[in-house]
Write a protein that binds this DNA or RNA. Structure first.
Lengths: 122, 122
DNA sequence: ATAGATGCTGGAGTACACTCCAACTCAAGT
DNA sequence: ACTTGAGTTGGAGTGTACTCCAGCATCTAT
């Protein structure tokens, strides 16, 4: 899989893919005859998982740490599990806050709707 | 209310409070005899609301826009309502993604637990 | 009246996560 | 042979949101 294809599939820009490789988030893929990156299909799953960690607020440094543990093999499974458990709690906290703020938005929108009705003499 | 107090109550640093004033997120408060900021109690509510918008991913530029609309008085209620409705959709999308990733974390943690049990011959 | 705490300003610096660029190589089509 | 399009490198630049600092003023307690 070429970098343009992986970019399209993953939603990350080509520059970001090379950047992720540089900082150790993605394994350097094999190269084809022209020296171009030729990603194995599994790369996509990993990149999607990274994007999910990113979207849920895991920091680059922690994702790099996770990637290194993963690259180190199955002896790091306990550490990886711990990272995921910790991140799970972060996500739970975010869910709670988002739920609260969503309810607040609902209340505010309603208040504004009532105000608008008064202003237009409905 | 002095800036150190507001900082403690709001969770924002003193520098951040002054920065928010500089970029137009917070109204410049009156000053006491020494030229120190003396915030009205309502400032805290507004700052907490700003923090909630921030925590749910609203950009600085949009928060500034909202703050300006708010400062412009009740004629801007419709625009403010629209902003909140749009942000509400952003929050809903985030909630969905967080829920998905939380489920993924649960699955992964479980997989790792099973792996660990196998490795330790439980 | 002196020390320490708290606050002030303007401006520089930082952290994070990309994003862009110049200058180049390579393969394929006409 | 030559253009086109995709890919390469190393390094510089960007946007967002703070965060820190020097140098100074003022209040409070001893």
């Amino acid at each position: 899989m070429k970098i343009s294809n992986l970019s399209a599939q993953s939603g990350l820009s080509i520059d970001t893919l090379r950047f992720y490789e540089k900082i150790g988030l993605i394994d350097p893929p094999p190269r084809d005859g022209a020296g171009h990156r030729d990603y194995p299909p599994e790369a996509l799953n990993w990149i999607r998982f990274l994007s999910q960690l990113n979207a849920t607020g895991m920091k680059q440094a922690d994702r790099i740490r996770y990637a290194r543990l993963r690259a180190a093999g199955e002896t790091t499974v306990p550490q990886r599990r711990q990272m995921l458990e910790e991140h799970r709690e972060v996500i739970r906290a975010q869910l709670e806050q988002l739920t609260d703020v969503l309810a607040l938005m609902d209340r505010k929108v309603e208040i504004y709707q009532n105000l608008e009705e008064e202003m237009t003499d409905v």
